[in-house]
Design a binder for these strands. Structure first.
Length: 320
DNA sequence: GTGCGTCAAGTCCAG
DNA sequence: CTGGACTTGACGCAC
């Protein structure tokens, strides 16, 4: 028996004026005459982003959604080198606590996906430093919510740097330079251009890191089929407090195969589900589509009549 | 109100 | 070697 929960990314197209990613660019900040006033403005933006996250969590609850990825742009300029003296966590303590309280009373699996400038396999010292700094901020946010940080941040392996094998070994090297508390955050995802499921599995098994399987990326970038090694993917989760996680998206078109479509192709998703049926007790599927929660709702509608599924609630089902 | 240019990050490709 | 594309959502300015 396999239970599937559906989740979505960062923002809702149904809730109005609820962006969790409002921002101020460094250029805007830099041009302000009063730096202190600028910092207070950044804090107001960050607090508003967090308040909007809470609205999103309530929206999720109302729709039985218990799986959600926070925006990684919650705190604008949080890791900017010119703002090192900015103690933004002080202003965020209360809104983070409110989110934490809500999650505690209405459990949802939440996590982050720091953007692709976070590169753990870089050979550039500054880039690595920024990467670790960004991870540290994500850890602080999770701690501020009183959420166990373990396995809450999805990362890609990183750049190829002209030699994929070497780049994989560089990842392992840099892993040794990464504080254990930050290692604990990380789960790794196969990407659509360089590191395949098998490359990623190599690292995950070697380093004891859970792997997030991205089915769409796999279709775009693979040397081998995924089915016979699916058990290895599931195996990377055996020591995690969280269920197996994967990413679901559909190609925008044949021409723009790697780009995300607005909605999810239900047939492609069913193909996957039929293949993994019974292999794991529970799997959380992150819907990565342009239309965000609307794509989730549409998928639920389209799969609603499917005889192979038994619905547990509005956003989760059992594969029969 | 709509829409296009700008912003930010690191990589990678074209020239 | 350099400069622009890539990606994403937000935002500001022009019409």
């Amino acid at each position: 028996m396999t239970i599937v929960r559906l989740g979505y990314v960062a923002m809702s197209v149904h809730l109005e004026n609820a962006s969790p990613s409002q921002t101020m660019t460094y250029k805007q900040f830099f041009q302000l005459k009063d730096r202190e006033a600028g910092l207070r403005k950044l804090e107001r933006i960050a607090v508003s982003n967090l308040q909007n996250c809470l609205r999103l969590l309530k929206h999720n609850l109302a729709n039985d959604i218990r799986f959600f990825r926070f925006s990684s742009k919650l705190v604008p300029l949080a890791n900017h080198p010119e703002l090192k003296d900015w103690k933004f966590m002080r202003a965020l303590k209360e809104p983070l606590r409110e989110i934490g309280d809500f999650i505690e009373s209405h459990p949802q699996r939440i996590g982050f996906h720091p953007d692709h400038f976070v590169l753990l396999n870089t050979t550039n010292k500054d880039t690595l430093k920024n990467t670790l700094q960004t991870l540290k901020i994500h850890e602080a946010m999770l701690k501020g919510m009183a959420v166990d940080p373990k396995h809450r941040c999805v990362l890609h392996v990183g750049g190829a740097y002209e030699d994929k094998e070497k780049a994989l070994e560089q990842f392992i090297h840099n892993w040794g330079l990464t504080p254990v508390s930050l290692q604990d955050l990380i789960i790794l995802e196969n990407d659509d251009t360089v590191f395949t499921m098998h490359d990623t599995l190599y690292l995950c098994e070697k380093l004891g890191v859970p792997m997030v399987f991205d089915y769409h990326h796999h279709l775009a970038n693979h040397e081998k089929d995924w089915e016979e090694d699916w058990g290895r993917v599931a195996g990377t989760w055996t020591n995690s407090p969280l269920p197996v996680k994967m990413h679901i998206s559909s190609p925008r078109s044949d021409k723009e195969y790697k780009a995300h479509a607005e909605y999810i192709d239900p047939n492609m998703f069913m193909d996957f589900l039929n293949e993994i049926k019974g292999s794991v007790k529970q799997i959380d599927c992150m819907i990565e589509a342009k239309k965000k929660d609307d794509a989730l709702f549409r998928l639920v509608e389209e799969l609603g009549e499917n005889k192979q599924l038994r619905w547990v609630d509005k956003a989760s089902f059992e594969i029969l």
